[in-house]
Write a protein that binds this DNA or RNA. Structure first.
Lengths: 218, 218
DNA sequence: TTATAAATTTAGTCAAACCTAAAAAATAAA
DNA sequence: TTTATTTTTTAGGTTTGACTAAATTTATAA
């Protein structure tokens, strides 16, 4: 499951274009960001698709799978933790650190990341003010809200879900995952449950207990 | 003048075989250390020779040029500084750090190395007791040895002590300082502690933990 | 001192990640 | 709706650093 540095850079770039939702990004945009040519991007997209890290259909742009999103977030976690280290401990200024962090983010060692995180006392934001994903790849978003508070007819993107394994299992069963677009079709006052439409397709009923544990972003 | 990771690994391996002198090392020995095949080594040797980092004559083994030696020492400097960081700051044990340091040593940034060195307060030895070359690639006399390795009845001069302030305070309290002449009167197998005579006068008992952190020269 | 063995180099392949040029598909304009 | 333009993909190359197999050189032993 370990990516090459190049594969990691592609994942990161795709994530930066598509964000936490399931938006797509074009071959040319990826090439422009990475400073490579479109032809090279196409080749790499095939490799990433074969590993089920992205969804790729010819001439159609790409989106990250849950697995790809997870990988990207963990690389971003490393990048931002190292940036924090460089500024807070080594006294670099915030504008000198990017290039070095680009290298450090590719060091492969789970133990290293976790110990670095502890050593730095679990910072939540990097020196540029961007949030640092936690070890599960969950990223704070201050303008997120609980699904239960979303009003009827409104749409939002699933941002954070609590890390209870049972809840996660249930959600994946009914087709909700990080980045899903939810529309509130109806709120049932009797039990505060909600009728939702997922990604403009399937409809599903969720209890208030569940809706309290999902955070979404408009 | 920047080397690839692979070139850096070859330089480092050659240095570890040839040392600070101008000894030579064979193709096969390099291959064995790196886990590659002799044919691959031959190819790389040509590249390094073209950069004047090694002296290479077919079928004749290689030696490092001054420039190659310098490069190798700076890589070793990085490796050992990162090892020190991993143990002293991130609390890894000394036997878990090698693999990660192998990756970190290839990060390219002069500023990073110098700031890391300052942050660590310019350590002179890594957690395995090996000396850390300074920024010019100058390495402390490698034929100094750890006091703990000195055998009974032998005498030696204190060369360097680790820079832990507490240790330094303790040593000055019992009368050991840079340049003191120590004679090993007795080694106690039970706890590896040592009974020493200092400058032919006072006797003192030091624990194994202390004896590991003092370097002496015969 | 010749025959055998070991070490080293050469020659030819391969995979990864890039490239250019040409073909194909999708999009925009006439 | 055809034509033109842009985007994307395919096809064929290049470089780096590895490989195997065969050839060459050096070292060892009978």
């Amino acid at each position: 499951m370990i990516q090459t540095t190049s594969e990691e850079n592609y994942l990161k770039t795709i994530f930066h274009h598509t964000g936490i939702g399931n938006q797509s990004v074009t071959t040319n945009d990826i090439a422009a960001t990475l400073g490579t040519k479109a032809a090279s991007v196409t080749e790499m997209l095939k490799k990433l698709a074969a590993q089920k890290l992205i969804r790729y259909k010819k001439y159609n742009g790409v989106t990250l799978t849950d697995s790809g999103k997870q990988q990207a977030l963990l690389i971003i976690r490393k990048h931002r933790l190292w940036e924090y280290f460089l500024v807070e401990k080594l006294k670099f200024s915030w504008d000198e650190i990017h290039e070095v962090a680009e290298q450090l983010e590719h060091i492969q060692s789970d133990a290293l990341v976790e110990r670095l995180d502890s050593f730095l006392e679990n910072p939540k934001f990097d020196p540029h003010g961007d949030p640092i994903p936690d070890k599960k790849g969950i990223i704070i978003n201050t303008d997120s809200q609980k699904l239960i508070d979303l009003s009827e007819k409104k749409e939002a993107i699933v941002n954070l879900v609590s890390d209870q394994p049972e809840l996660l299992r249930h959600l994946s069963k009914i087709g909700i995952s990080l980045g899903s677009k939810l529309k509130v079709l109806e709120k049932i006052p009797f039990d505060n449950s909600m009728l939702l439409q997922i990604n403009g397709k399937s409809k599903v009923q969720v209890s208030a207990d569940i809706a309290k544990n999902i955070r979404v972003q408009i």
